[in-house]
């Protein structure tokens, strides 16, 4: 770990200014991902701006019947909130499928959106990695890629966004709210928040330098039945091979997003529209442009079977 300086921000905008104005500065909230990466010198910030005590730790009703979740609401608090449990159950289920109780106590809503990939070559600083060290190459391509992406990836990077919470936010049409160093605010639809890797896998989100997530807005509840199926090699405490977030209406229509397969929660209108036709039709739409490797090709069949399991439960 490299030496760094540290400050606590008093307001969101001051935090944004502090990071925006200083090369090498980063925000820190729960620290559940950043600290590990700093110990391995995958992240080497020179200055940390601590934002976890900013007054963005509550969940409030919006005028439109939805909820505004402060950026620093913990994963534990968010998943346990009565309105979330009642009206946005897919979010509770997704959060509780991830990490451990201890980590969920520390992890924040904003930070969870920013967690970085778990590609093993990203974690080993002896290996080439375009995300960690742009231009150095990708060791995962042609290597051990069983956990890695099958769709939306590029010839520069095949990593996935590893989280669970964002897959639920994707089917809830959540909007990420931010503040920039100049005080301007933005509302970024969740579907546009995580970038596809393309030629710049080191750029992972739509956030600009210094831009701070202040909250996540959920529109009015979508109704329907909520599902989150996370499939993995052991029963708990593992990242998904594939996960499926779904909200299914009584008429068979609905929304579906896949996790563990792409640089972002993988949702499309075409896939949603295919839901009444069954899992096979959805997968044909969602993975039409897939480019799997030999060792992760199974993820497409697994996604189909996992969704089929959800649809069977709806039908039963």
């Amino acid at each position: 770990m490299r030496s760094f300086t540290y400050e606590r921000a008093a307001t969101p905008q001051q935090a944004a200014r502090a990071v925006g104005g200083k090369p090498g500065a980063k925000f820190i909230a729960g620290g559940t991902n950043l600290l590990d990466l700093m110990k391995l010198e995958i992240e080497t910030p020179t200055h940390l701006v601590d934002v976890q005590d900013l007054p963005l730790g509550s969940i409030e009703e919006t005028g439109e019947g939805g909820l505004r979740i402060g950026a620093f609401v913990s994963n534990t608090a968010l998943s346990a909130h009565p309105r979330i449990r009642r009206d946005y159950a897919v979010l509770t289920r997704a959060i509780q499928a991830g990490a451990s109780g201890q980590l969920r106590n520390k992890a924040t809503t904003g930070g969870n959106l920013l967690q970085r990939t778990r590609c093993p070559y990203f974690y080993d600083t002896n290996m080439p990695c375009n995300k960690r060290s742009p231009g150095s190459g990708c060791a995962a391509i042609g290597g051990f890629s069983r956990q890695l992406g099958v769709v939306g990836v590029s010839d520069k990077c095949i990593a996935t966004y590893p989280g669970d919470m964002a897959n639920a936010l994707a089917v809830l049409d959540a909007v990420v709210e931010t503040v920039q160093p100049d005080g301007a605010t933005r509302s970024i639809p969740i579907g546009a928040f995580h970038r596809l890797w393309g030629d710049t896998p080191e750029r992972e989100t739509a956030l600009e330098k210094g831009e701070l997530i202040t909250g996540v807005v959920l529109p009015a509840p979508p109704g329907g039945r909520h599902f989150y199926s996370k499939v993995r090699d052991r029963a708990s405490y593992a990242f998904a091979l594939v996960s499926v977030a779904a909200v299914i209406q009584p008429d068979g229509s609905g929304r579906v997003a896949f996790g563990g397969v792409a640089p972002r929660p993988w949702r499309s209108k075409q896939a949603d529209d295919a839901l009444p036709l069954g899992a096979k039709a959805v997968i044909q739409q969602a993975f039409a442009d897939a480019s799997p490797r030999d060792d992760n090709r199974f993820k497409i069949a697994l996604a189909e079977r996992t969704l089929a399991g959800i649809l069977a439960e709806v039908g039963s």
Binding site: P120, Y121, Y123, M127, F144, R234, A235, S236, A238
Partner: peptide, 20 residues
């Protein structure tokens, strides 16, 4: 290609947890 064990931490090398 590189001749090493890739999943060289306790997140990558999965052993059973209680739930298993």
């Amino acid at each position: 290609r590189f001749g090493f064990f890739v999943n060289h931490d306790l997140a990558g090398y999965e052993v059973p947890v209680h739930a298993d």
